[in-house]
Simulated assay, not measured.
Amino acid sequence: MEDKAHFPPVNPVTAGLSGKCPRCGQGKLFDGFLGIKKLCSACGLDYSFADSGDGPAVFVIMLVGFIVVALVLFVELAYQPPIWLHLILWLPLTVLLAGGSLRPLKGLMIALQFRHKAEEGRLDQDKSQ
């Protein structure tokens, strides 16, 4: 609860998509392309809670896969180009879309994880013992 007293609420969507700290919205979240920093340089938030796992990759696969497969089917049914043209068109597009969306989605998942205080599940000990 101390965080709310010292830091105004930050929109997790804008902070996450821009790669900023989910607590203050100022410091950088990423160290490199997908690596997470240890601490926020602005407010000192420890990013050890951040564990997005495979969540961003799953969303990227679903979103990019849907877009690319829809485009491939449309082009194939409308124009019937040779397979080499499909490879030239869709492989670079897939790489660009996946690479461009993975980092913002990872930032968004970490910001939402911080906002909702999500953490690894724990079993409660039976207090009657």
Rank of each mutant, 00 (worst) to 15 (best):
2 E>Q: 11
4 K>Q: 13
4 K>L: 13
5 A>R: 14
7 F>C: 07
10 V>H: 02
13 V>E: 00
13 V>D: 01
14 T>E: 09
14 T>M: 07
14 T>H: 07
15 A>F: 14
15 A>D: 11
16 G>I: 04
16 G>V: 05
16 G>Q: 04
18 S>F: 08
19 G>A: 08
20 K>E: 02
22 P>F: 07
23 R>Y: 09
24 C>Q: 02
24 C>W: 01
25 G>Y: 02
29 L>F: 14
29 L>R: 00
30 F>M: 06
32 G>M: 07
33 F>Y: 15
34 L>W: 04
36 I>L: 01
39 L>S: 09
40 C>L: 03
40 C>M: 06
41 S>H: 09
42 A>N: 13
43 C>K: 10
44 G>S: 09
46 D>L: 04
47 Y>K: 03
47 Y>G: 04
49 F>W: 03
49 F>S: 07
50 A>P: 06
54 D>A: 12
54 D>H: 08
57 A>Y: 07
57 A>V: 15
59 F>T: 09
60 V>N: 08
61 I>N: 04
62 M>V: 14
62 M>N: 01
63 L>W: 00
65 G>Y: 01
66 F>A: 14
68 V>A: 08
68 V>Y: 03
70 A>D: 06
70 A>L: 11
70 A>K: 07
71 L>A: 13
74 F>D: 04
74 F>H: 12
74 F>C: 01
75 V>C: 00
76 E>S: 11
76 E>P: 00
77 L>E: 12
79 Y>F: 15
80 Q>V: 08
81 P>L: 09
82 P>W: 06
83 I>Y: 10
84 W>H: 12
84 W>C: 01
87 L>K: 03
87 L>H: 07
88 I>F: 13
90 W>F: 15
90 W>I: 03
91 L>W: 06
92 P>L: 10
92 P>H: 09
93 L>Q: 08
94 T>N: 06
95 V>I: 15
95 V>Q: 04
96 L>D: 06
96 L>C: 11
97 L>H: 08
97 L>Q: 06
98 A>M: 08
98 A>V: 06
99 G>K: 09
100 G>H: 11
102 L>E: 03
102 L>V: 14
104 P>M: 08
106 K>H: 06
107 G>C: 06
108 L>D: 07
108 L>A: 11
109 M>W: 14
110 I>A: 04
111 A>T: 02
112 L>F: 14
113 Q>V: 09
116 H>M: 09
118 A>N: 04
118 A>F: 15
119 E>K: 14
119 E>F: 10
120 E>C: 02
122 R>A: 13
122 R>F: 13
123 L>S: 08
125 Q>R: 05
126 D>Y: 15
126 D>C: 02
126 D>I: 13
126 D>T: 08
127 K>G: 04
129 Q>T: 06
129 Q>D: 07
129 Q>C: 01
129 Q>Y: 05
